[in-house]
Simulated assay, not measured.
Amino acid sequence: MKEYQTPKDRRYTETLLNAARQESAAFMNLKHTAERKDGAIPAKYRELMSIAVALTTQCAYCIESHMQNAVREGATKEEIAETVFIAAALRAGGAVGNGLLAMRLFDEIGSVATTGPGGE
């Protein structure tokens, strides 16, 4: 394989949607509902949140799409930059939170290793 994730892959959108009609319809309904403009959260903020999530999930297609929407909704370069760093901080915070789990698991595994599998 010569390349991964290229904009040319978008030509497979209909193929994917048609191959799983019920699932894709449910997904598209959720997507359209989440991206609606008449919700309590203004469209610009919905798009900034979408960019933050897209950055953490590392979906290039989502980043591009929601950047276009955010700019159309009036997001500034400064708002985008802050969104990037908020997403980065939360992503790093998630690693630290999971690090707490790793520390607990180390203690639990370590206590099993020193006492034996039966706790003896």
Results as ranks from 00 to 15, higher is better:
76 T>W: 02
64 E>Y: 14
107 D>K: 14
106 F>I: 12
56 T>Y: 04
111 S>H: 15
105 L>S: 14
51 I>P: 02
52 A>C: 12
100 L>K: 07
97 G>F: 06
67 M>Q: 06
103 M>Y: 07
98 N>V: 05
104 R>K: 13
45 Y>W: 11
74 G>Q: 00
52 A>W: 02
58 Q>D: 08
74 G>K: 02
108 E>Y: 10
82 E>I: 04
51 I>F: 03
91 R>E: 14
95 A>F: 10
80 I>G: 01
72 R>D: 12
54 A>W: 03
71 V>R: 15
105 L>Q: 12
108 E>N: 09
69 N>Y: 13
106 F>A: 10
61 Y>R: 06
94 G>K: 07
106 F>E: 13
50 S>N: 13
56 T>N: 11
51 I>Y: 04
97 G>P: 00
72 R>V: 11
73 E>D: 10
95 A>Q: 08
86 I>C: 05
50 S>I: 01
97 G>Y: 04
110 G>M: 01
70 A>G: 00
87 A>F: 03
73 E>T: 01
94 G>N: 14
92 A>E: 10
50 S>A: 15
91 R>V: 05
90 L>K: 05
61 Y>T: 04
64 E>H: 12
67 M>L: 15
71 V>F: 13
55 L>E: 03
102 A>Q: 10
71 V>D: 06
74 G>V: 00
87 A>P: 04
48 L>E: 02
66 H>V: 00
112 V>H: 01
94 G>E: 07
99 G>R: 03
84 V>M: 10
75 A>M: 00
58 Q>F: 08
79 E>M: 01
71 V>E: 12
89 A>Y: 08
50 S>R: 05
74 G>R: 01
48 L>S: 02
62 C>L: 02
61 Y>A: 11
56 T>P: 05
96 V>P: 05
111 S>P: 06
60 A>T: 13
66 H>R: 03
84 V>S: 00
74 G>I: 02
83 T>A: 13
66 H>T: 00
110 G>F: 00
48 L>I: 06
94 G>Q: 10
88 A>M: 08
67 M>R: 05
45 Y>M: 10
70 A>M: 04
46 R>C: 07
107 D>Q: 15
46 R>Q: 12
92 A>G: 13
94 G>C: 08
85 F>S: 06
59 C>P: 02
50 S>H: 05
94 G>P: 05
48 L>F: 03
112 V>G: 05
64 E>M: 08
56 T>Q: 15
58 Q>L: 11
78 E>C: 00
75 A>L: 01
62 C>E: 02
80 I>L: 08
67 M>P: 04
108 E>I: 09
100 L>H: 09
79 E>Y: 01
85 F>Q: 10
68 Q>G: 07
56 T>K: 07
46 R>N: 13
78 E>W: 02
68 Q>M: 12
95 A>H: 08
59 C>E: 06
51 I>S: 04
71 V>P: 04
46 R>I: 09
77 K>G: 03
81 A>N: 08
100 L>I: 14
63 I>V: 15
96 V>A: 14
86 I>R: 09
91 R>C: 10
83 T>H: 03
